[in-house]
Amino acid sequence: MNQTTSVSDPSPVEKYRNNFLKEVEANVEEGDWVKMCMQCGVCSGSCPLGSAWAHPPQELFMMIRAGQREEVLRSESMWMCTSCYSCVVRCPRELPIMHIMHGLANYANRLGLAPKMNPTKRFAKLFWDNIAATGRVNESRLSIKLYFMNGLVSGIKTAFAMRKVGLGMLKTHRLNLIGFFRAGGIKEKNQLQQMLNKAYEIEDKRKGLS
């Protein structure tokens, strides 16, 4: 394993002072593609939840080049990505736009800059914790946690609004309440957790986040 960074390395803020583009190229998944963007706007017209993006992908790329670090990393925009891959197959410059959006969201998240209350960010965390715990999705635990994501009162409201969906799923055996109490999951849970922890450690070190 080649050690490219060590604990004494400066934080990304210092290391890339005044050069956000370089920081994105080094630390964001597929970030080295950003410079290839020719600002044609095809991607921005492709996002299904387009009207909810304060800064569509094309604009985010421009802002990265303009060094608008805070505005980009604190933005809710990339959290509106539905992973539909439309941009990826349409971009004339073949940028893996979706992965850059995911990469920006993940990076902002790890730096603690992602908008705290963004529902997709919060759901994504519930989801990841759910699979990391047992190696597989436990849908009943996930949906119960999801209902209560916004606190007790609104949780009960959500659960009430969703009760017909839940009942339908239960009746057709597509949701299992017993699963809420029994963890299930894979046999080698501990092994998988150790592997994931090590993966985090290595990745954080490489990005100077440890």
Binding site: G103, N106, A124, I131, G135
Partner: peptide, 26 residues
Amino acid sequence: PDWNCCGASIGYADGGELPRHVMNAR
């Protein structure tokens, strides 16, 4: 045997790159 979750599309936010690839590689 003993396959694990792929991380799904939403796994990016907390999974990052390496942990996600490790899950699939397993």
